[in-house]
Structure formats: structure tokens, C-alpha cells
């Protein structure tokens, strides 16, 4: 995909971006309006979580009662203890953390490299291969799951983490695409200057592009974490022992064989607890967002 350089903005910064938005004269009014919208949106988005919290502290009896109570009449913290006692929830958490860690590391390594290749290096068939890569996103997982199951069964990987972690080291089209788009936005002058200084392509990637890419690395890390954390289908099909289950799958044990009967308080307690690592990861990644841009700004 050769594109023309039809730049609407001619002034390209040789400096790295900094954490700073435009200056506003009517900052006060703007800030107030911003806050107003942010708070309204946040309240709407948080209602469901409040409801989850409230349900997790109820008795099963109260969940099923009309009219719905938002504040439980009695706070049943025991539901949270039950989650650990009735299913090996701690084990599930551990498994999810391992799967997600492997998935993040694998995704960042195996996606930043092809992302750079597709964005900054010319080779025969680049556009074609890029499109082929995108096509892997276009088939529902149901189409490939049986062949994958057979393959991992043949090599004896069923009931291990390998069928989930190892493929993450072989690139994911979505993350590669994200890296590529980000790398395409980095000014060419930086790369050219480094070449003049005798940098190898890998060093340009490693020492110039990656440090400037912390926002996108953080984004991919967040996406990958949540993907592996929430993934249900692959663990379901590949794992045969309960002690390998991740949280996403283990949590569903609070459903029962009885028709329409789900222990919602315990399930919500488990769901909320499984969200805690997600919140931690997101906060950490956010820090990376800001820090990253500041560091590169200082360095250059």
C-alpha cells in the first residue's frame, strides 16, 4: 500500500509528543462542562456495577424478591467467603494471572515486530500479506476451533496452558494492525537520522520506536490482558481438569443443572472479585501511558 505524502500539516515535530493539550482561554467553563458530562456518563456506566455489588451482598431469597432492593437488608459478606470455599477460586485466579501474563508478553513481542515490518519496511507482497493477516480476523472462532482441538490433541498439549499461551507468541492480527498504525504515525525523520548514525534496523525498532510507543504498548497490554482474562471458549475446549480452569470458566460453576437456578449473589461476588485485577492492570497501564510520553520527551 504505497501512499502519497499529502500532508495537511507540514510542520512535523522532530520532538516526541508531550502530555499536554491545547491552551484554552475559557478553561473554567470548559472544565465545568467536561466534568458535568464525565460525571453523568460515569454514573450511568457505574449503575450496573453498583447493582452487582448490591446483589453480591444479598441472600438468594432477597435477590428473588419483588420489589427490588438496592441496599441489601442484611449484608451477607459470607457470599465472598463462599466463593473461595465452594470452588477453588484462588486457584482459578492464579491460572488466569498466568494465562494473561503469558498472553501479554507473547502478544507484545510477537506483534510489535510485524507491526514495525508492515509499517516501516518495504518488501514484496507487503500489502497482500497485510490483507491476508486481516482476514484472520474475519472468520468466527467456531470455524477453527475443531481443527485446533485436533492439532493440540495430536501433539499432546490438551489440558496444559500451551495451546493458549504458545499461539500468543505468533502474532495477533488485531494487535499487529494497532502497532502498525501507531508506527506509521512516527515521523520518518527520526528513522532517517538514526540510519545516518549507523543504526541497524533492529536497533531503530528497539531503541527508537519501542520507547516512543508506550501508549500503544499499554493499549495492547490492556487489550491482551482482558482478552486472556475473559476468554472462555479456548479454556473450555482445551482444559480437562478443573484445577487448570481460569476464573472466567470457574465462575460459571455457580450455575446449576436445575433449570433457571443460578446463585446470583455468589456469582456476582466472584465476578466483582475477578474484576479487581482488571482494574489494577488498567491503572498500571494508564501510568505507562503518561510516563512513557514524558520519558521520551525528556530524552530527546
Amino acid at each position: 500500500m504505497a501512499r502519497q505524502q499529502s500532508a495537511p500539516v507540514t510542520k512535523t515535530a522532530s520532538q516526541a509528543p508531550r502530555w499536554e493539550m491545547g491552551v484554552s482561554q475559557h478553561r473554567l467553563v470548559g472544565a465545568f462542562a467536561t466534568y458535568f458530562m464525565l460525571v453523568i456518563g460515569a454514573v450511568i456506566l457505574m449503575i450496573p456495577f453498583f447493582w452487582m455489588l448490591s446483589t453480591s451482598l444479598k441472600t438468594l431469597d432477597e435477590v428473588n424478591t419483588w420489589p427490588i432492593t438496592w441496599i441489601p437488608s442484611e449484608w451477607i459478606w459470607q457470599n465472598y467467603i463462599d466463593v473461595f470455599q465452594r470452588i477453588p477460586f484462588a486457584r482459578f485466579l492464579m491460572n488466569s494471572i498466568m494465562l494473561a501474563t503469558g498472553g501479554i508478553v507473547g502478544s507484545i513481542i510477537s506483534c510489535s515486530l510485524p507491526g514495525f515490518g508492515f509499517a516501516r519496511l518495504r518488501f514484496p507482497g507487503r500489502s497482500f500479506l497485510f490483507f491476508v493477516m486481516l482476514t484472520t480476523l474475519m472468520m468466527p472462532a467456531w470455524v477453527v476451533i475443531v481443527p485446533h482441538f485436533m492439532m493440540f490433541n495430536t501433539i499432546g498439549w490438551l489440558d496444559t496452558f500451551l495451546p493458549i499461551v504458545v499461539p500468543s507468541f505468533f502474532g495477533n492480527a488485531f494487535y499487529i494492525f494497532l502497532f502498525r498504525q501507531y508506527f506509521l504515525g512516527i515521523p520518518k525523520e527520526l528513522e532517517d537520522a538514526a540510519r545516518v548514525d549507523g543504526c541497524s534496523t533492529f536497533r531503530i525498532f528497539w531503541q527508537i520506536f519501542l520507547p516512543m510507543s508506550l501508549p500503544v504498548i499499554a493499549t495492547v497490554a490492556v487489550f491482551a490482558f482482558f482478552y486472556y482474562w475473559n476468554d472462555l471458549l479456548y479454556p473450555l475446549v482445551y482444559f480437562r481438569s478443573q484445577h487448570n480452569f481460569p476464573v472466567s470458566l470457574g465462575m460459571r460453576m455457580f450455575q446449576t443443572a436445575e433449570f433457571n437456578v443460578i446463585h446470583y449473589p455468589r456469582m456476582m461476588a466472584a465476578a466483582l472479585m475477578s474484576l479487581i485485577p482488571c482494574i489494577l492492570v488498567f491503572s498500571f497501564a494508564q501510568r505507562l501511558f503518561i510516563q512513557g510520553v514524558v520519558i521520551t520527551g525528556v530524552e530527546k
Partner: peptide
């Protein structure tokens, strides 16, 4: 070389991490 070393290292690390969890 750097590229393949790095890739090899992380693939190995991933495999190791995964096999840390004993499978029945």
C-alpha cells in the same frame, strides 16, 4: 540474530511459564 534470540527467549519463557502449572 538479535531478533531470533529475543523471540526464542520469549517463546521459551512462555513455554516454561505454562509448564509450571502441573497438568494432570
Amino acid at each position: 540474530l538479535q531478533l531470533s534470540a529475543a523471540t526464542g527467549f520469549f517463546v521459551g519463557a512462555g513455554a516454561l511459564l505454562s509448564s509450571c502449572v502441573p497438568a494432570a
